[in-house]
Design a protein around this nucleic acid. Structure first.
Length: 415
DNA sequence: TCTGGGGTCCTAGGACCC
DNA sequence: TCTGGGGTCCTAGGACCC
């Protein structure tokens, strides 16, 4: 059997660990730039606040209803996530970390699943302060559905026989099934397939033809046939992106260059972390897509690197060059991004006859750079090109502290 | 004034090869 | 009216996830 452990309202729960007085109060966490609402406590959900709603549309409502608002603090959430995953790893022989707040556990060989799950919930809560729900089934898709059931009930739910499976599937709206998005939902509803059970009973051929092998896999999983296996070691990323909306609209080219340089450095860091290097680098910039008065400009340019690289200076240079070809003076830019692709292992680089460059030197530079920044914090050592004015930086007006990630913001315990 | 960010997989169709 | 057959590789776009 497979369990899906899912943290309840994860970002909100992380904030509450350090602000316990917010328990039972409506709390939300905003996306980057304080733009959208991306995590809600149960109390906030009950007030009718929807996932992904623009925060500015709800500002008045939230004030009136005493909703507590946080900017997103990804350093904190990432750290809390690791703590949760460490606890899960101790409990189960095989674990797949599926996202920042979810993990699949292989429960083969474990007796009395229900009490195992209950004890695990308590242990995670005790070790980390984070509440989780656990759904169990014999496929990943069924574990997902069981998890929804667990969230609505008392935190644990097991689908362990065909009768329960049928009843739960009939109770699951088709759009809530893992892997069925808006498009497929709409289409299936058109055929009066409104719940997971009906979908599972469709003919294999129809599903294969209309929803590709992906849809067919989901269908078989709902019938109880495991098709999606556990992946204990996360595969290396094939695409890495760093993209941000600016805190305010920018026209000044030097500021946009700083932002793009910083994003290129972030991509280089992510590449080095997974020990790979990229052959392609794309830069894009665009104006405000929601503007009613200005026309929208959206442009990207891809550069081919002479040798696959993960070095800050190389990527920044390539990004600058690409930016030159797409930047138009006079526009108000809202967002930029750097994307690296054609990723290969760093220890197996194809040379280039016509390119001169001292790779060994660059490698040493990166190592020194990373070790300093690991020790003293990100961007302690940085390129001048990244600037320090940070006028393009995110708006984060309600940021919580780095309780577990910054020594000078560590939580105080009063005696 | 204010609307996130970062990924994966699959398919169809074009280019090209022998 | 006839105009092969069988591949591979690449890319854009669609669909989905958290």
């Amino acid at each position: 059997m497979i369990a899906l452990v899912d943290c309840n309202n994860f970002y909100v729960s992380c904030e509450r660990v350090f602000r316990p007085e917010l328990e039972l109060k409506p709390v939300v966490v905003l996306s980057n730039n304080d733009g959208c609402i991306i995590s809600r406590s149960n109390e906030a959900k009950k007030l009718g606040i929807a996932m992904g709603e623009p925060a500015f549309k709800r500002e008045k409502f939230m004030k009136e209803n005493g909703v507590v608002c946080f900017s997103s603090n990804y350093a904190l959430y990432g750290d809390m996530s690791q703590r949760v995953m460490d606890t899960l790893r101790e409990a189960a022989p095989e674990i797949e970390v599926y996202s920042i707040d979810e993990a699949f556990l292989n429960l083969a060989g474990i007796q009395n699943l229900y009490s195992f799950a209950e004890r695990l919930r308590e242990k995670v809560k005790k070790d980390t302060g984070i509440p989780v729900s656990i759904g169990i089934g014999n496929t990943k898709s069924l574990a997902k559905i069981a998890n929804k059931e667990a969230k609505n009930g008392n935190g644990v739910f097991i689908i362990d026989n065909p009768h329960i499976r049928k009843a739960i599937l009939m109770n699951t709206p088709i759009g809530k099934v893992w892997g069925i998005g808006r498009r497929h939902q709409k289409r299936l509803l058109g055929y009066n397939i409104d719940n997971a059970y009906r979908f599972s009973q469709l003919s294999d051929n129809w599903v294969k033809k209309n929803m590709t092998v992906v849809g067919h896999r989901i269908q078989r999983e709902l019938r109880g046939e495991p098709c999606i296996s556990m992946e204990q070691v996360p595969p290396a990323k094939k695409v890495i992106a760093t993209t941000r909306a600016f805190g305010k609209k920018l026209t000044d080219k030097s500021l946009i260059k700083e932002a793009v340089a910083t994003y290129a450095v972030r991509c280089a860091e992510k590449l080095r972390k997974q020990q790979s290097a990229a052959n392609l680098l794309t830069v894009f910039i665009h104006t405000d897509p929601f503007s009613a008065t200005e026309s929208v400009y959206y442009k990207s340019q891809t550069a081919i690197l002479p040798i696959a690289s993960n070095h800050n200076t190389v990527l920044v240079k390539a990004a600058y060059k690409a930016l030159e070809t797409i930047f138009i003076e006079g526009l108000k830019y809202k967002k930029a991004g750097v994307i690296v692709e054609a990723i290969v292992p760093e220890n197996n680089l194809q040379g280039n006859l016509f390119f001169e460059g001292n790779q060994a030197k660059l490698n040493i530079l990166s190592e020194v750079n990373d070790s300093i920044n690991r020790r003293y914090g990100r961007d302690t050592l940085r390129l001048a090109a990244q600037g320090n004015k940070k006028e393009w930086k995110l708006r984060q007006q309600k940021l919580s502290k780095g309780y577990t990630t910054k020594l000078d913001e560590i939580i105080d315990v009063k005696s």
